[in-house]
Amino acid sequence: MLRAGIVMFPGINRERDIAIALTRSFGQKPVMLWHKDPSIEGIDLVVVPGGFSFGDYLRCGAMAAQSPIMRAVAAHAARGGYVLGVCNGFQILTEAGLLPGALLRNAGLRFLSMDCQLKVARADTAFTSHYQQNEVFRAPLAHGDGNYTASPDVLDRLEGENLVAFRYEGENPNGSARAIAGIYSPNLRVMGLMPHPENLVDPLMGGTDGKALFDSLAAAST
């Protein structure tokens, strides 16, 4: 079982949600990591949760990307460690250069909180093994800056190398290039996505569509 740690930046607000989802699938609680920590010990999976790190002032994720722990997260990723960034976490990973591209203001210029449909681009990664390829599942989203953008070269490379994780199916809510909702690093160990599968892991909250992502990680090996 992977040992999971959740990075806490000031202003992050979905750390409890992620902890609930991880605990449900892993059967054990994740470790909480503090943004000023210079190193990460004994963690296999680093999760950067959603929220408004440092108020999202300047640019979403920009200041968090410069904090001490992100150097340790980069080193962890360079060693082949797992990293998951959700929403603000995805923005932080792009700002830190761990994933390509950037997240711009939603095309409609409004914060959006709604369910979206996600299509699983590949089901052979540590993040998606419990989904089927091309499976469409429901996930809540809640963001003002989820409009994925990258240069045409980068987008072509992501598609050519099969590094797109999820695409919006049906309505593209935020104007993302090529309807991209989530992407992988070339070694498939770092993944970022805008929607919140962690908010749909309990039938009481309206469904369990998001649970397979955490079940996949629970089944992954180091």
Partner: peptide, 11 residues
């Protein structure tokens, strides 16, 4: 409603 985060907290 679609501009208010209604799901944060997971409850």
């Amino acid at each position: 409603w679609d501009q208010y985060d209604a799901t944060v907290g997971g409850q």
